[in-house]
């Protein structure tokens, strides 16, 4: 797939990092403002998709990228499970998904115990999943056209 014109490339260069940072902001403020892991993950995947669409897929080693994003997805879901099991071990009561960290004051950035950690794991998982689907479609197209 070929890239687009120089105007689109320049605007993408300027905007892409901002969109990525916005996704990270949405994820880590998920317990204070609207948003959370699901919304932030999709926004991060969208910034990568914008980059691929405007610059074209020629300069990407697609197979390697796909292996990497698939690996990130699997490790993110494993992290989610490990935090849940840690709640069972450390929490003392033997309850799955136990909130074992102190709650803190409502409205501060560092509060709500393990909920921000869950948010980060889910955000990584959703972003990597959607990026993997998109890369799989691109690889399929390249292989069929060849």
């Amino acid at each position: 797939m070929k890239g687009m014109t120089v105007i689109v490339k320049k605007v993408t260069e300027l905007m892409c990092g901002v969109i990525f940072l916005y996704g990270i902001y949405i994820i880590i403020h998920g317990h204070l403002t609207p948003g959370g892991g699901f919304a932030g993950g999709v926004i991060i995947a969208g910034s990568f998709i914008l980059l691929i669409l405007s610059f074209g897929s020629d300069f990407l080693a697609l197979k390697k990228e796909e292996t990497g994003s698939s690996l990130i997805e699997s490790s993110a879901i494993l992290t989610f499970l490990i935090i849940a099991v840690l709640g069972m071990i450390i929490g003392g009561t033997g309850v799955f998904f136990k909130n074992f960290l102190p709650g803190g004051t409502i409205g501060k950035l560092i509060s709500a115990g393990v909920i921000p950690l869950y948010n980060i794991a889910i955000g990584m998982e959703v972003a990597a999943a959607i990026l993997t689907i998109f890369l799989a479609l691109l690889i399929y197209k390249d292989e069929v056209l060849k």
Binding site: F38, V42, Y140, V144
Partner: peptide
């Protein structure tokens, strides 16, 4: 519903992948 929306995107992508394989 928040979880259902994201699942919907993944299942729609799966159906489209099957459709494009059938087209080939």
């Amino acid at each position: 519903v928040l979880t259902a929306i994201v699942i919907g995107l993944a299942t729609t992508a799966l159906l489209l992948a099957i459709a494009i394989r059938i087209y080939k």
